[in-house]
């Protein structure tokens, strides 16, 4: 059976429990589910919100490509990735990744892999809205995120 992959790029929030339920519905072969949720931080009160810009079409395509690669590489039984765009306030969801596999390690690794590549290759950009009303900056890409992605290449 081909592992079902669900990818959505949307303005609306998502429901972690509902996404896990949809992924496991009617299946008895899954032994491990790992989920990762990325949330907007308030940066100790300095941040009012993040504005998430994205490249429509390519954002979906790139996340799909990453999920397919993860399914292939780790033998996942299913994968779901949802990324929001638009204005997101502290405490609210930005991204969700859910992976399923017969045993835990593949699900952990698969979710980690998807997030590492999503952060560096999926076309999204964050802009800050600051609480003091000053002009918000575009968030800078981090070398640590490139390093996290590159370890998957070095290991293989």
């Amino acid at each position: 059976m081909t592992a079902p992959i669900t990818v959505r790029v949307q303005r609306d929030d998502f429901d972690l429990a509902a996404e896990v339920a949809a992924l496991t519905c009617g299946r008895a072969d899954i032994g491990a589910i790992v989920s990762f949720s990325g949330l907007c931080r308030d940066e100790a009160g300095a941040l009012n919100a993040l504005e998430l810009e994205h490249y429509p079409g390519m954002a979906d395509a790139e996340i799909s490509r990453i999920c397919h690669e993860a399914v292939e590489r780790f033998g996942l039984q299913a994968a779901t990735a949802i990324h929001r765009f638009g204005r997101i306030e502290p405490g609210k969801n930005i991204v969700l990744v859910v992976t399923a596999s017969p045993h835990r390690q593949a699900a952990f690794d698969g979710a980690n892999f998807i997030m590492d590549f999503l952060k560096t290759a999926a076309p999204f950009w964050k802009k800050e809205h600051r609480a003091d009303g000053s002009a918000g900056e575009w968030v800078s890409a981090k070398d640590a995120d490139d390093a996290a992605r590159d370890r998957w290449t070095l290991e293989s």
């Binding site: 998430l52 490249y55 997030m115």
Partner: peptide
């Protein structure tokens, strides 16, 4: 398309 390094996730 031209853009800066990506900062999603």
């Amino acid at each position: 398309a031209l853009f800066p390094p990506m900062t999603g996730g």
